[in-house]
C-alpha cells in the first residue's frame, strides 16, 4: 500500500505543482489585481501608495473596489457582455445547423468511410488559426468575386451595395468557420453510438422520417449537442482575433475590450475585472450546460 501511495505522489505531484504555480497562482493574481489601483502611467500603483487616489477611505492596503464600481456604474459594459453572448449564441446555433446533418451523415455511413470523413473535418482545423480567419479577408474583400456577385445581385433588386468584409456578417462567418469542427466532433461521437434498431422499431410502429428524427435521434443526441455547444460557445465568448481582423466599426466584444485594457489603455486592474467577469460568465454557462445535459442524458440512457 505504501508503494502504491508513493507511486501516486510520484506521478501526480509534478503536474500538480506545475499547474498550481502556472495556472492556479496566476488566476489568483488576476483576482488580486482587479482590486488594485492603476499606476499613474501604466500597469499598477504600488500597493502601499494610497496617496495616488486621495480621499478613498475604504482603502485597505492599496486595495479597492473601484474597478467593480466602474464596471457597474452604467449599462455600457453589461451591453458588451450581452452583445458577446448574442454573437456566441448565434455562432453556436449556426454551427449546430451546419454540423448536425454532416455528423449524422458520417455516423450513418459505412464504417470504412467514417474515419476518412471525420479526418476531412479535422484537417482544415489543423491549419493555422489566423490563416483560417485571413482566408475570409480574401473571400469577402471588396475586390473579391463573391463581393461583386452579391452586389450585382443587390443592384438587380434595386438595393444599395453592401460591404461584406469589416461587418458583423464577416465576424459571424469567421466565428463559425473557426469553431465548426468543435461542434461536429462531439456530435459525431454521440451519433455514432446510436443503435439503429431503435429507428427500425420506430419505423415498424409507423413513424415517418421526420418523427423518427424528432422522437428518436434528436433526444438521444442531446448530450452531444450540449458538449458541442459548450465547446463553441465558450471560446467565442472570449474571442478577440476574429472581430479584430474581420470586424467593422461596431464589432467590439469582451475579448477586444480586455485586450485593449492591457495593450492600449494600460489599465491592468480594469482589464482584470473584465476578465473575472468573463470567467464568471463562462462558469455560469458551463454550469447551465452541464445541468441541462444531465437529466436528459439519464433519460436517454434509460430508454436504450
Amino acid at each position: 500500500m505504501q508503494r502504491r501511495n508513493m507511486m501516486k505522489w510520484l506521478i501526480s505531484l509534478p503536474p500538480m505543482l506545475f499547474l498550481l504555480v502556472f495556472f492556479a497562482a496566476p488566476s489568483l493574481i488576476m483576482i488580486v489585481t482587479s482590486f488594485r489601483y492603476p499606476g499613474e502611467f501604466s500597469g499598477l500603483a504600488p500597493l502601499s501608495a494610497s496617496d495616488i487616489v486621495s480621499g478613498a477611505p475604504s482603502d485597505l492596503y492599496g486595495l479597492t473596489l473601484e474597478t467593480y464600481q466602474f464596471f457597474f456604474s452604467d449599462t455600457l459594459y453589461a451591453e458588451i457582455f450581452l452583445k458577446s453572448f448574442a454573437v456566441a449564441t448565434a455562432s453556436t446555433l449556426i454551427c449546430l445547423l451546419l454540423a448536425y446533418p454532416l455528423a449524422l451523415l458520417i455516423a450513418r455511413s459505412d464504417k470504412r468511410h467514417r474515419n476518412l470523413m471525420i479526418l476531412l473535418v479535422i484537417l482544415p482545423f489543423a491549419s493555422n488559426f489566423l490563416i483560417r480567419i485571413y482566408a475570409w479577408m480574401i473571400i469577402l474583400g471588396p475586390e473579391s468575386a463573391l463581393n461583386h456577385a452579391v452586389n450585382s445581385l443587390l443592384a438587380l433588386m434595386g438595393l444599395p451595395p453592401v460591404m461584406l468584409l469589416f461587418s458583423p456578417f464577416a465576424v459571424l462567418v469567421g466565428m463559425v468557420y473557426v469553431h465548426l469542427p468543435f461542434m461536429i466532433l462531439p456530435l459525431y461521437t454521440n451519433l455514432e453510438k446510436h443503435d439503429p434498431v431503435l429507428l427500425d422499431a420506430a419505423q415498424d410502429l409507423g413513424a415517418n422520417r421526420w418523427q423518427r428524427f424528432w422522437r428518436v435521434t434528436w433526444p438521444q443526441s442531446l448530450p452531444g449537442v450540449f458538449s458541442g455547444t459548450a465547446l463553441v460557445f465558450i471560446p467565442v465568448l472570449g474571442m478577440f482575433a476574429v472581430p479584430d481582423i474581420l470586424g467593422g466599426t461596431s464589432d467590439i466584444l469582451i475579448g477586444n475590450l480586455i485586450k485593449d485594457q492591457f495593450l492600449g489603455t494600460r489599465d491592468w486592474p480594469f482589464g482584470s475585472t473584465l476578465s473575472i467577469m468573463l470567467m464568471l460568465a463562462v462558469i455560469v454557462t458551463a454550469g447551465l450546460a452541464a445541468w441541462l445535459a444531465r437529466p436528459r442524458a439519464a433519460a436517454s440512457s434509460t430508454s436504450t
Partner: peptide, 24 residues
C-alpha cells in the same frame, strides 16, 4: 487544474499569465 485551462477562453489564461510573469 488540468482540464480547466482547456475549457476556459484562451484570453483568460493569457491575461493571468501576463500579470503573473510581470508581477510575481
Amino acid at each position: 487544474l488540468a482540464f480547466t485551462p482547456v475549457a476556459m477562453p484562451e484570453i483568460l489564461l493569457g491575461v493571468s499569465l501576463l500579470l503573473f510573469f510581470l508581477q510575481v
